[in-house]
Amino acid sequence: MFGLTTHLQNKRRKERRVSFLLGCLTLCLVLPIAFIVGVLLFKGLPAICWEFLAADPIRGMTAGGIFPAIIGTIYLVLLSLLFCVPIGVIAAVYLSEYAADNWFTRAINLAIVNLAGVPSIVHALFGLGAFVLFLKFGTSLLAASATLAVMNLPVVITATRESLEAVPRQFREACWNLGATRWQAIRYVVLPNSLPGILTGVIFAVSRAAGETAPILFTGAVFYKAELPQSILDQCMALSMHLFTLSTQVVGVPEAFPYGTALVLVGIVFAVNTLSIALRFYFRTHRKW
């Protein structure tokens, strides 16, 4: 009784084989990431020094640093957040808390899903047409961040809606039963409790905005610009764009430069993502229900 039978032995052997196989496949998934990070560190780390981070590129980008590109990326990201976070959060609150379920809202939902699937180069063309030419922003920080904002709207809207819907319905009902209006329930109970989820979405939008090249290619990022942008109508450099030009457009660049630039970009995105994970973890352990 309770002992090991032949049949059980076979089952156990099979179990081990399956878990080994699944483990191998998972490892295959991790390998490219490890490889990318490894190569970037190996080839890019020698380039990283104070001068590389804090100086302008000189001598046709073959020397100096990437400081304007770092600043340009930060400006682009912050400005695009300024556009897409308020609009995205407001739209999400309306869609999930107010809008009736009819053909119109269903059409809007469909539009959001499709917007999320639009390739970034198409966003770039849209930005060129809508912001640069039609609204006459010119190729500028403003046009480029607006384009990034449009690209990130579905991200922010979806993340916000998901976190709003994660707040149990009973809390809203409790508010309504006390005679609170919809807005009061949202303002005092729903939004405070969905803030962590919204924040996560926003941070995800940050890393996307920092990494994308196509949307800023025609709308505001430039190959080389000596001074930092003075206004939002100036053009600027950006890390992703800089990486593109260093790798394909310029001759005589030290090999470590593009890798170093990539390392800085990936580093920024990693840092922001790590922050997002940490925040999510913090809020999950401090959740009130």
């Binding site: 009973q170 809390f171 005679g179 209006t181 005092y188 009130k288």
Partner: peptide, 27 residues
């Protein structure tokens, strides 16, 4: 809003809001 102010309701499952005790009473 006014009707529900005058007609209070208590449910099967206690449903306090995810706020402090003080805020719940004052809500």
């Amino acid at each position: 809003e006014e009707l529900r102010k005058d007609v209070g309701m208590v449910f099967q499952r206690p449903n306090p809001l995810p706020l402090s005790i003080y805020e719940n009473v004052m809500f």
